[in-house]
Design a protein around this nucleic acid. Structure first.
Lengths: 247, 247
DNA sequence: ACAACACTACGGTCTCCGCCGTAGCATCAC
DNA sequence: GTGATGCTACGGCGGAGACCGTAGTGTTGT
């Protein structure tokens, strides 16, 4: 018997209830939601959701921010999101085998957020372009930026030296839909944040799926020479033109 | 509602039972065990274990090899091991916070197998030495070997060009005990296999913990200049020759 | 102060499922 | 053949826990 066989079961048990899994899944985009919203998304009454949230808190999977009469729940950290992604690699494999790709599935595979950074073919495209251009090297505990890589981040308006806390600036994260790595870490989060801020990428309502705008394509193509911005699999059918707003 | 919220819960539910979690945990060293052995390790009767194993099979987490009247169960693939490691990062964090380091925990943190490759401080030491020496670069979907890196693997008796299947030759894998990456992938598996074959590393009975022998230290120190083979945290109290003991 | 709202605490019901008993099927030893 | 062994199938027991109704606490707004 080893140290944490039982603990493994505890954590997995917390994630193994459909209602709780729906809640965690809904929080994987890194946003914080209220107990009522999570109850609705999980399809249970608020009382039931309250109990689930208390259990998830005690298990260390969630963090809460009190704000007036609302309680905003969010994932406790990137490790939680990464553990969930690891499970989704398995769950997604099953899905691919026995399900036809649905429309929402296709949108998620194209571009989505993964906790606080980009995933899907968008995230992989960025990763691959940086790799192909020689802008990344291997640093202590993750990826590092070469001089040219730092220049690219600077051009996009991100300070490449900024690292929040002990977290690695850049590291690979296995993508559950494509089974290839995309970029995670504080710099990847900063890139995503910047893209939302500048309107290069738009959030989708009620989904982790996101949309790359025309402007975003232009900016990324300019900054990242190898980025295959014209690849049809990155073009959204919904927001092609100069963006007619869309909440 | 997205594609695989429910599937996530199915997989997590399978891992969330103590008996099943113990079984999966016991299989994380990549070996195949019989139903009876797994029943003993999980602490349940063979009939109960049989039911659990059937469920894990149906969930795609296990594979089985029939051999005479024995059925050898093993993890279905490296993705399963990686998902379990992801959960152990969370479970291990809790352990570290509320438990004193036990003797078996210390042994596992020092050196162990993770499915088919080395983890713990041994695995991290190998990773860091290769990184520091500039023997790794970033390749499509994982790490690649530079010329000097390929020479090192060749010197150790491993064909660096060999890649089994579509699996990446080398990729980072987050270590649950140290929270830093070690090397996974088919080349990392080949390295571990070679080390066992040549007696550079010894398997521990009834545990994923392993021991670096004196000869292994010498070989790795010669092949990997930056490898901190003298670091006290890698010396085992059991096998070292001069050995001032420690524990 | 009063009502509306977000959330939590407690209690009862009911379903699920982990557990092992016995029994049955295959393989190995002799 | 006979018996022993490894494993699985089925059935009944029992406990854990998911669910919601009711009730209570704290906050916001008028």
């Amino acid at each position: 018997m080893s140290t944490n066989g039982p603990y493994l079961a505890e954590i997995a048990h917390l994630m193994g209830d459909p209602a709780r899994a729906n809640m965690l899944h809904a929080l994987m985009d890194g946003r914080a939601l209220t107990a009522k919203e999570l109850a609705f998304l999980a399809g249970v009454a608020p009382q039931t959701a309250s109990g689930h949230l208390a259990k998830l808190m005690q298990g260390g999977l969630l963090a809460v921010a009190l704000q007036g009469r609302h309680r905003y729940y969010r994932l406790a950290g990137a490790e939680v999101a990464q553990a969930l992604e690891g499970l989704m690699v398995l769950a997604g494999g099953d899905t691919a085998r026995r399900r036809l790709p649905s429309r929402v599935g296709e949108e998620l595979s194209r571009a989505r957020t993964c906790y606080d950074h980009f995933a899907g073919r968008l995230g992989i495209g960025i990763h691959d372009a940086l790799v192909a251009g020689g802008h990344l090297n291997i640093a202590d505990g993750g990826y590092g930026l070469t001089g040219s890589g730092a220049a690219i981040f600077g051009e996009l308006g991100i300070d490449p030296a900024r690292k929040t806390g002990r977290r690695a600036g850049l590291r690979p994260c296995l993508d559950w839909s494509e089974r290839r790595p995309h970029l995670a870490g504080s710099l990847a989060a900063a890139l995503a944040c910047r893209c939302f801020e500048m309107g290069w990428v738009l959030r989708r309502k009620d989904s982790r799926a996101v949309t790359l705008t025309e402007e975003g394509r232009a900016v990324l193509a300019k900054a990242l020479p190898g980025f295959r911005c014209d690849a049809p699999e990155l073009l959204s059918p919904a927001v092609p033109a100069p963006a007619p707003a869309f909440a």
